[in-house]
Structures are given as structure tokens and as C-alpha cells.
Simulated assay, not measured.
Amino acid sequence: MTDFLEVTRAAYDVVAVSYEELLRDDLAANTADRAVLGMFAEHTTGRVADVGCGPGRITAHLASLGVDAFGVDLSPGMVEVARERHRGLRFEVGSMTALDLPDGSLGGVVAWYSLIHVPPELHPEVFAGFFRALEPGGHLLLAFQAGDEPRRITEGYGHRIDLTAYRLPPERTSALLVDAGFEVRTTVVRAPEPPNEKTAQAYLIARKPA
């Protein structure tokens, strides 16, 4: 089951530089993404881990909103790009399947289109790790493509790659969060924005009970 980690790491190492260049200004054109991130920022106090941070664009946006955010990513290539692009912020290599953070040390966790590369049968384990790392009253934000099927990606950001992305049903994902102990506070599902998006996009904000 660890093979998916190696495949995902390799793919994002390859695309790291071009990924950052292509998505650098994406948030500026996406009102819904900014609104959800703003809502999360208002709910959250304490340190926030952006898990699967890629080149750090979400980490940096949260920091611009006054959040004490740092990034964690599986790909050393992505972490290198993030550190170069956002020199005042902290980024480290790590995996959401084995989150190396102390119990109750975080006010918030963000998994922004990063859970999609973890096989769904491992999601309960991932959510348990998020729950453990959050302090009581801490918040979790997930963003993902809505659906119920895996998609194999063989080309992305100008490179040949081999990567699986899982579209996830919001209702089932919410139920798994509840099973992990979370209270789901906000669910948003929006229509895709052409030409780049092919399916509905989902956002969940959940809270660890105080």
C-alpha cells in the first residue's frame, strides 16, 4: 500500500516547478476558494498545518489572512519550490498517512486537494491522524473533486506522469469524519468552472469538539 506514496512523490517531484508557475495566480480568479479559505481562517486560532501543501500557495494565502500557517508535503521537489517562493514561511517533507506532529499541537489542518491521492480505504487512518494532531476546538478543511471514481493521470503540467486521483463523495467523506470524532460544520459543493474543471468541487470544514 506504500507504493502509492512513492508514485505520488515521484510525479510531484517532476512537475513541481511547472505546477507552481501554472497555478501561481489561480486563487486570484477563484472567488469560491478564497471565500472558503477566509471562512476557515476566521474559525481558526493557533498553528495551522497545510498538509499536501505543494508549492505553498495555500499556505501563503492563509498567512496573508493572519494565520500562523506552515506547509507539509510528500514531495521534496515541491517543498524546495515552496521554500524558494515563500521564504518567510516554514515548509517540511512529510506524509498525511504518518503525520509527524505532536498530539493536540495544531489549531487547524488543511488538506487542499491532497487527500485525493490517498486510496479511500486509508482515509479513516488519515482522519484519525488529523484528529490526534488538532487541539480541542481545532478545525479541519478539506477540498476535493466530488464524485465516486478514481482517475488515472498520465500527463500533467507539461510532463508525462503516472498518478491516480480519487474523486470523493462529500456525504461519505463527511460520515468518515464523524466516525473519526469530528463535527462537520460546513459543506460546500459548487459547479465546475470550465475549461479546467470537469466535475463539481467540494469543501468540508469540520471541528474537533472542545
Rank of each mutant, 00 (worst) to 15 (best):
A49E: 10
N196E: 14
V67K: 00
L62R: 03
G54L: 03
A175H: 12
R172A: 14
L141D: 02
P120R: 05
R132L: 09
H123L: 13
R87L: 06
L5I: 13
V110L: 06
A175F: 06
T59F: 09
M78T: 02
A210V: 14
R34H: 11
V48D: 10
D13R: 12
A10S: 15
L168H: 02
L176T: 07
L177H: 05
D26T: 14
A180M: 09
A98M: 06
H43K: 15
P76K: 10
R24A: 14
R190Q: 11
L142A: 03
R47H: 11
H117W: 03
A111R: 00
F130G: 02
H43N: 08
T199Q: 11
I153Q: 08
E197R: 09
F182G: 04
A128N: 08
R83S: 14
A11K: 00
T31G: 10
D33M: 07
D162R: 09
F4V: 11
E135S: 15
V14M: 01
E135D: 15
V48S: 07
T2I: 13
Y113P: 00
L176V: 09
V109L: 06
A28M: 12
G181E: 08
I116F: 05
L134E: 07
T45N: 11
V81Q: 02
T8W: 05
A180W: 00
L142C: 04
H117R: 00
G52Q: 02
P136R: 08
R34T: 10
R57F: 09
R90F: 05
F127I: 09
R167D: 15
D13E: 13
A16C: 10
G52C: 04
L89G: 02
K208P: 07
M78A: 06
P120G: 08
G138V: 08
T59L: 09
A60Q: 12
E20T: 06
A111K: 00
T173Q: 05
A82V: 07
H123M: 04
T45G: 11
Q145A: 04
S75A: 13
R83W: 03
L106V: 11
A180S: 14
P195K: 10
V110F: 06
M78Y: 07
Y12C: 00
P124A: 12
S174Q: 13
A82T: 05
N30I: 01
P209L: 13
D73I: 04
E6Q: 15
G52H: 01
F40V: 04
E183M: 11
R185G: 05
R47S: 11
R87N: 06
A10W: 02
T8D: 04
L62W: 01
T173W: 01
P120M: 09
S64I: 06
C53T: 14
F40I: 09
